[in-house]
Design a protein around this nucleic acid. Structure first.
Length: 419
RNA sequence: GGGGGAAUGUCCCGAGCGGCAAAGGGGGCGGACUGUAAAUCCGCUGGCUAAGCCUUCGCAGGUUCGAGUCCUGCUUCCCCCA
């Protein structure tokens, strides 16, 4: 079916913006979306206190779902996280404690408040936790109820299982059951909230299909699955990893400034694709931006950074980050919006070896790393490249604004103030 | 139950006759060149207020001046036989 032929705004939009990898029954989903409100869900792991940009594609789909007149469900995997999703993982995941999981869910929840409209209307978003039903099942009950609907023969054919076995890596029985739990999630959501659509990354296809089938068998109703392509950078790398670690969505784990920088540093070749996926700009505008020649493409990257940051952190934080970047990179000024760390005045009075200070404020991962950077000419104090490992930093290094600027490379910049 | 293999730097893959902070890649970071891009070239890629000290090769012991390397036991995985 050609993209233009889609009747529903929902399917048409996702298609046009590059979200769609596979759909279980595209025509039927399109029809259902054109006829009325479709309730759809995406499951999120609760292994960390924040989601990262790897989940952003999924989040954007929930936004579009709601924007185009349907109802999104955010399903937190409180129950499944106790088991650990083995899908396309080489090694088993560690099991997590309930209290930790609950804390993670609470933290993740804060991000969704800005991204989706949670209200009582027909398209109001809702958030659920699969622990609510999964932990309630008794073993025999679960086996009797759902066991008959799955065959080992079939389960072994799913790539997620097959590849693990082929690579001769262990797959525990616990993990093997993961796909059953995810299928049951879909069923429960169908019963509780009339959910008919599950979306996810392409690696979730097998799990999603299982859910679609379970709903069809037990509810005698057609359900849909939709997966996104794996989003990689033009360099072929999985998206969202930087030296500093994952690109978190929670501001307390990655500052809006760094988040803005992440998008600003997008490779030329990725700009158009990312604008379509991670902003809600009109496609016509994006088409204009992505073909900007040479260095002008940087304007498109700023637009991308502004919009992407505004979505997650708000307009104000995005503007602040953009302004800080402008002053730091374009004018080379010390901006108070740069990440700032306070250091005891006494310490500066006495003098601190530069590598020790760099490590102390978290600019580098270790003082040894700082030393190496220093020797390689990669560390600057107040914009002057330093090479002396024994350089002492003192109060004399403070600038007119009472702060000193430490930078690793061109992009990792921090301010130090005495306290 | 019996026999044979495997586990290496907390990103990954992977070499390693008893002298090892441990070859070589990939990835990442820094530098040069640029446009806060890509490509290319060069450097770095255990920790420590550091000419020194400390910790690393699945786990626990042992032999030795000295163990990733040899011996014993254990754990996990793979293969063959039953």
């Amino acid at each position: 079916m050609a993209p233009q032929a889609f009747q529903s705004e929902f399917v048409r939009t996702l298609h046009a913006r590059g979200f769609v990898h596979q759909i279980t029954d595209a025509e039927a989903l399109d029809r259902a979306s054109a006829e009325g409100v479709v309730t759809g869900y995406i499951g999120f792991d609760a292994t960390a206190p924040s989601l990262h940009v790897g989940s952003l594609v999924q989040i954007m789909m929930l936004r579009w779902l709601q924007k185009t007149g349907h109802r999104p469900i955010v399903l937190m995997g409180g129950g499944t996280t106790k088991v650990g999703d083995p899908t396309f993982r080489d090694t088993s995941r560690v099991m997590m404690e309930g209290t930790q999981i609950a804390a993670n869910i609470a933290s993740i929840r804060t991000v969704f408040g800005r991204l989706l409209a949670f209200d009582d209307g027909p398209t109001g978003a809702i958030m659920l936790d699969n622990d609510d039903w999964l932990s309630g099942y008794g073993y025999l009950e679960f086996l009797r109820t759902y066991g008959p609907h799955f065959t080992i023969n079939r389960m072994l054919t799913f790539d997620s299982v097959r590849l693990r076995l082929e690579r001769e890596q262990p797959l525990s029985f616990l993990e093997f059951n993961y796909m059953l739990m995810q299928a049951v999630d879909f069923l429960e959501l169908n019963r509780r909230a009339g959910c008919r659509l599950q979306m996810g990354g392409s690696d979730q296809w097998g799990n999603i299909v299982n859910g679609v089938e379970l709903v069809r068998r037990l509810q005698e109703q057609q359900a849909f699955g939709l997966t996104t392509p794996l989003i990689t950078t033009a360099g072929g790398a999985k998206m969202g990893k930087t030296a500093a670690g994952a690109v978190w969505l929670n501001a307390d784990m990655l500052s809006p400034y760094d988040y803005w920088q992440f998008w600003r540093n997008t490779a030329d070749a990725d700009v158009g694709r990312f604008l379509r996926l991670f902003t809600e700009l009109e496609l016509d505008d994006i088409a204009r931006l992505e073909v900007l020649p040479g260095a002008e493409i940087n304007e498109a990257k700023k637009v991308l950074a502004n919009h992407a940051t505004a979505l997650v952190h708000g307009r104000e934080a995005a503007d602040t980050a953009a302004a800080a970047a402008e002053s730091a990179f374009v004018r080379g000024e010390v901006s108070s919006d740069l990440p700032t760390v306070e250091v005891a005045r006494d310490q500066l009075q006495a003098g601190v070896p530069l590598p020790v200070l760099a490590n102390q404020i978290g600019l580098t991962g270790s003082s040894s790393e700082a030393r190496r950077l220093l020797q390689g000419g990669g560390l600057r104090l107040n914009d002057v490249t330093q090479t002396d490992v024994n350089r002492l930093v003192t109060l004399a290094d403070l600038g007119p604004e009472g702060a000193l600027k430490l930078a690793v490379g061109k992009k990792k910049i921090m301010l130090v103030r005495p306290a």
